[in-house]
Write a protein that binds this DNA or RNA. Structure first.
Lengths: 336, 336
DNA sequence: CGGGGCAATGATATCGATATCAAGATATCG
DNA sequence: CGATATCTTGATATCGATATCATTGCCCCG
């Protein structure tokens, strides 16, 4: 047992190359390449024969060599904002669903998904990617700018903003705000409150839609700025409302957790949901659906968002014209 | 505007190579390579000069070329089980935290993280990876076997099982079970119930620990098999208990959601938590912590698990001896 | 003063795939 | 029947980096 050297290459696999296959098949490398690449330039028979041989010997294409020759990596880097402290992202389901959609679409298009957390711009592999997908726009868009400079095809998940040049895919946050406003109006609410972080691009859009729609009816909602999207933050928000003796009859919270916190605080204050106050959350989390009372909320389609993100980068890489797109959201009316 | 060809290469970047840099610096390619690679073979001065030049011109290493030459991809593939229907994984936070830890550790070691969903074994890029991390062992271990055949260094997240040969990193599920049992015993509970899926490797371990510890005190817990880990499932479990007139005074649920559902059902039945029945959940989710009453639960350290997974694959790739490892969990006693 | 030793750099081959162009084999047509 | 078009295959160059071995220059010491 003396062979356990420290840095031995570990996988001393057979490592069949095209040249080896060519020798085995009695043809040239290039014919093998063409046969495996489904090129119409080779006879169906030789193609079959070579493919069978490749299968039999467990031939594996060397991706690096191919990428080198073709001058592209067939890889899209996905950059995820993963600040564990943010209260969101790390714990929320959405990046995973998004990731699922992205991964599904890209791999089925023959692309690889390279996962990175922010601040790895120096990562050579990211620079080598054919395209970029940025998840978690962030409050200050600094990440967007950083990666924009790399000059790669890039698509961002989040909210569209006028001055930015990059392609954005996201939920139609503005419309969500409008929908919630309409709902509140239709059930006769006149004193709505918005809880969220207006510095966050997506939430700002929700707020705009909300405010604009209400303004059309002469109503001006109260904005309760909350940076954290936790349950505690929701509790706290409603308590502060109560302590300021503000009169309100509807709450649009920017996350289900905020909404649930708000409801808890309302109940503590002896208010009834939805009789005294209507509450709508955001994200349609499983917890919200199982909450007592079941939470009304806005659902966005993350899986589809991921697929769309992937399609857009691919199109960009392909040099096709691409436009930003906002996905419709749906207001789920439950008991609150 | 006639230049919008369909398949133009999109990024016709300057694409500086080492040869170009070499010409600019008046040295040979290999010297550039050495300078950028911090080789001690070049004078500190020339190294500085070349690095400055590289920075100035925005030189980017061609990863494919390097990987080709070095016969390794510097990439670890992470395979995530993402069945959207499973009720877990897709929606649970843990893969993301794990992913965060993995990504952090691997990228800081100069490796790239290739994200894949299951069933992409054919993916050439996965085959080209230097190592594999498998997230979501699955009930039948079929995925493990599939990837095992590829002969790559592989580490799996989940529960250790005697007959398997691969390296496993996971939480010490057995010990978690023991801890919860101890807790129940210490507060005088004699009729405990376990809610979970005993077919799932990790949960089976929890059950074993739980059962064994209780057996030492002559107590045999009731096993309530539940495949879904939803709140509804928890509600349903307790109701079935009640309808069968089973007497019980403690519940160990395999997820916080199950636990919360159980508590809800208990309250409906007019039982008091924790006076009549103690409840302990699993995973220490934010919702559980904010639940009323705040949920007692078992916390596993996912982030650290991710880091550990990464370190083990790297060690394996390096040819070092590696052993499976179970991370300690902690019982968080709150109000239930 | 001459040769061994060391430090810094370079020329060349190589990793494994594909593009390009050339060439042989076969078919088609006047 | 000869010539051109078509099909199939191959030889060679190439992508951009690094390993190996060779080379140059300089210092030191006998």
């Amino acid at each position: 047992m003396s062979s356990a050297k420290k840095k031995q290459p570990a996988a001393a696999q057979p490592g069949l190359t095209m040249a080896d296959l060519a020798k085995l098949a009695g043809v040239s490398k290039i014919t093998v390449s063409r046969a495996l690449g489904e090129s119409p330039l080779v006879t169906p028979e030789t193609r079959e024969r070579i493919q069978a041989l490749a299968r039999k010997h467990g031939y594996k294409l060397n991706v690096s060599a191919r990428n080198l020759r073709l001058r592209r990596s067939h890889t899209v880097a996905v950059i995820v904002e993963m600040r564990p402290s943010s209260g969101r992202t790390m714990w929320d389901p959405y990046p995973l669903s998004l990731l699922g959609g992205i991964s599904q679409e890209l791999t089925s298009a023959g692309y690889s998904v390279l996962l990175t957390t922010r601040h790895d711009a120096a990562n050579a592999a990211v620079q080598a990617a054919d395209g970029l997908i940025l998840l978690g726009q962030g409050v200050h868009q600094d990440a967007v700018k950083l990666y924009d400079r790399m000059g790669l095809p890039m698509v961002v998940w989040g909210a569209e903003s006028a001055q930015d040049s990059h392609i954005v895919v996201g939920s139609d946050n503005r419309h969500s705000g409008v929908s919630v406003a309409e709902r509140f109006l239709s059930i006769g609410r006149r004193h709505p409150v918005f809880i969220g972080n207006s510095d966050h691009p997506e939430m700002a859009q929700r707020l705009h839609g909300f405010v604009d729609e209400l303004a059309g009816h002469g109503i001006k909602p109260l904005l309760l700025q909350r940076v954290d999207w936790t349950l505690e933050s929701g509790v706290d928000a409603v308590r502060s409302l109560a302590s300021r003796k503000v009169h309100f009859d509807a709450i649009f919270a920017c996350s289900d957790l905020l909404a649930m916190g708000a409801i808890r605080a309302l109940v503590e204050l002896g208010l009834s949901v939805p009789n005294d106050v209507s509450v709508v959350g955001y994200d349609d989390t499983p917890h919200g659906a199982s909450f007592l009372p079941p939470l009304s909320t806005v659902r966005q389609n993350w899986q589809e968002g991921g697929v769309l993100l992937a399609r857009k980068v691919l199109a960009l890489i392909d040099g096709q014209p691409v436009a930003s797109q906002m996905l419709p959201t749906s207001l789920i009316v439950r008991a609150t």
